[in-house]
Design a protein around this nucleic acid. Sequence first.
DNA 1: TTCCGACAGTGGGGTCGCAAT
DNA 2: ATTGCGACCCCACTATCGGAA
Length: 512
Amino acid sequence: MLLSRLAEVSREVAATAARSRKTALLADLFRETAPDDVPVVIPYLAGRLPQGRLGVGWKVLSRPVPPAAAAALTVREVDARLTELGKVAGPGSQAERTRLVGALMGAATAAEQRFLLGLITGEVRQGALDAVAVEGLAQATGAEAAGVRRAVMLAGSLQTVAEALLADGPPALARFRLTVGRPVLPMLAHTASSVAEAVGKLGTCAVEEKLDGIRVQVHRDGDAVRVYTRTLDDITDRLPEVTAAARELPGDRFILDGEVISFDAAGRPRSFQETAGRVGSRTDVAKAAREVPVSPVFFDVLSAGDHDLLDLPFADRHTELARLVPEPMRVRRALVSGPGDTAAAEEFLAATLRRGHEGVVVKALDAPYSAGRRGASWLKVKPVHTLDLVVLAAEWGHGRRTGRLSNLHLGARTRDGGFAMLGKTFKGMTDAMLEWQTARLKELEVSDDGGVVTVRPSLVVEIAYDGLQRSSRYPAGVTLRFARVVRYREDKRPEEADTVETLLAAHPEVRR
DNA sequence: TTCCGACAGTGGGGTCGCAAT
DNA sequence: ATTGCGACCCCACTATCGGAA
């Protein structure tokens, strides 16, 4: 199949609003795909490369290359070239990657270049990724969409399921079962604004502490232990403590779900930055493990012995978890009987925060494990802080925000009457707010370099954030975590904005 | 008819590893 | 030794479609 066909379908999908029509377009393409092309066409139309990331980003891709006049590239040739590109390493590799990208782009028409650019950067912007591709695949093969979705969750990969389905039809789905050693997409949580709201929605539930670390899925089959991240990367070699802990548990075949986190000598959780740095260390794991040891803390079990537990209610899975994992290696929890018992949940949240943790996750006791889904049966609750800050600048947006000022630079007052930038945010704005702030900020413009519009510091905006973290980038030595806009405060003047001092005083645990 | 679940898009900061300077 | 880039951890929020209620 020619790459130009894919580029054309992708463009059509992007130009279509209705999801049903997007699905139909993908299904049509999948039907006409030859078996040999399937391993490439399916991921491409789901907006991903089968190779994963290539080590090529905007820096290399932003160099313009004259397009080819006629479409001649086949998808398999492109795939072969990108596989080569991904293998390049060592001294001189940047120049070599640039050369290979240039050669590929030079063989592509303008339309194909646009498609390739989106694929390689991971931003196809066609309004259809895995979920729509799954629907399209189901439609093309006559399989049940729910069955395809489940197979993809269990395989951890759309591509594997697509190949099997297009080769053998719907019966192939039965081959995809939960298997120890093969990672499953983890269940995710929604956000609730309060414990009362969460308990109100779920009724009888468990309230569990939410640790601010790295999500892990731990598989053990006899002596073989593997550890996977949320995106199913294998990080076993970086976490010897987790392997050792898993081997000491009484069962010898299981899949556990939990969090890895580092505690200091006093038993307090270290900051996310410290835990994440440790988990990211690969070159000298032994040294990293001595300096920042981590502990696994589990909250769910997906499989035990030869039993697939995914469809069991959470209450039953937890009974199994308690059999397998001793209490210190499990997340703390409280059982709550329903909305009448909210006070107990509130107290548990307060105690969890006193222990230095992030918040809680409220979980329905009757819900199955919805692999790969952000199910409504897990609701996280974290405290939210707010500040009144001043807009120092704004950046021109991309995609659907093109032509609008989007990303705000936020400043707090300093003692000398100036402002110190604390970070940026693009979150929380409605389309109407984007429209309004673009016009308002243009009135305050001091300069525009094409990317950043600097303004007179006079507009006050209320910002919500999850906490403070250390920063080497910003002048106050700290930055806001997950900053988002709540509303503009036109009733406030910049002299009334919050100061760096009050911010630091509100977060004494963050030392600069 | 209205409501709500699921998705995609729009990017944020930090840290590590690697290659280039 | 330092700098820049890319990958991958953490993530919030809004708009939209289409099925559920």
